[in-house]
Amino acid sequence: MNEENKDEAELGYTLLPKHFGKRFDSNIAKISLERAKDINLKRITAIIAPNNLPYRKILMKMGFEL
């Protein structure tokens, strides 16, 4: 959670390259967003590397905006 605003949190995680493409990233994001709703978070942000197109695609599918 954001220390200044308890209604906000940032979604972030790192996977080892050997786990890329195994849907862990989309499952982690989905479960994290479900939990955020459960605890009534109002805003979730995610900061990604500009060249991380697969993760950007996952977040866009889940309703994130650029």
Rank of each mutant, 00 (worst) to 15 (best):
E4H: 09
N5F: 09
N5W: 06
N5S: 10
N5H: 10
E8K: 08
A9S: 13
E10T: 04
E10D: 03
E10Y: 01
L11R: 02
L11D: 06
L11G: 06
L11W: 10
G12I: 02
Y13F: 15
Y13L: 08
T14A: 05
L15D: 07
K18N: 00
K18I: 07
K18Q: 05
H19P: 02
G21D: 00
G21L: 01
K22I: 08
K22Y: 10
F24D: 07
F24N: 09
N27M: 08
N27A: 05
N27H: 07
N27E: 14
I28V: 14
I28W: 03
A29E: 03
K30H: 00
K30C: 00
R35N: 08
R35F: 15
A36P: 02
N40P: 00
N40I: 00
L41M: 13
L41I: 15
R43N: 05
R43W: 03
I44E: 01
T45I: 13
A46I: 00
I47K: 13
I48T: 15
A49N: 10
A49L: 12
P50M: 04
P50A: 07
N51E: 15
N51R: 10
N51D: 15
N52H: 12
L53P: 02
P54C: 04
Y55A: 14
Y55Q: 15
R56M: 09
I58E: 02
L59H: 09
K61L: 06
G63C: 07
E65I: 12
E65D: 13
L66F: 03
